[in-house]
Amino acid sequence: MELILAIVIGALYAAGLYLMMRRNLVKLIIGLVLLSQAANLLIFTAAGLRSPNAPLIPPGEKYPVGEFADPLPQALILTAIVIGFGVIAFTLVLFHRAYQSIGTDDLDQMKATDT
C-alpha cells in the first residue's frame, strides 16, 4: 500500500510541478492544486498506514486497545484541505481578475513588475 501511495504522490508532484512550469495561468493553478493534494497524501502516508481500526477507547480503559489508526494525521489533512480550499478559491478569483486587467493568460507577458 505504501508503495502504491508513494508512486501516486510522486506522480502528483511531478504533474503539479510540470504544469506550474507552463506559461498558462490555468495550468499554473491546476499545478498548485495537485501540489497541495500531493502534500496531503504525503502526510497521510508518512505518518504510517498501520491499521483500519478506529481509535476508540473502550469503557473503563484509558487508551485505545490493540492496533488502531493514528487520528492526528487525518486531523492535520482535514485542516490543510480546508485552508487549501480557501487559498485556491482566492487564487482563482485573483487569476481571473488578473486575466481581465492584463488581457492575457500568458505568464511570459507579465513582466511589468519584474526587475
Partner: peptide, 12 residues
Amino acid sequence: AIFLAAVGILYG
C-alpha cells in the same frame, strides 16, 4: 506545500 509535506514527514 513544501512546509506541509515537511510537517507530515516530521510527524512520521
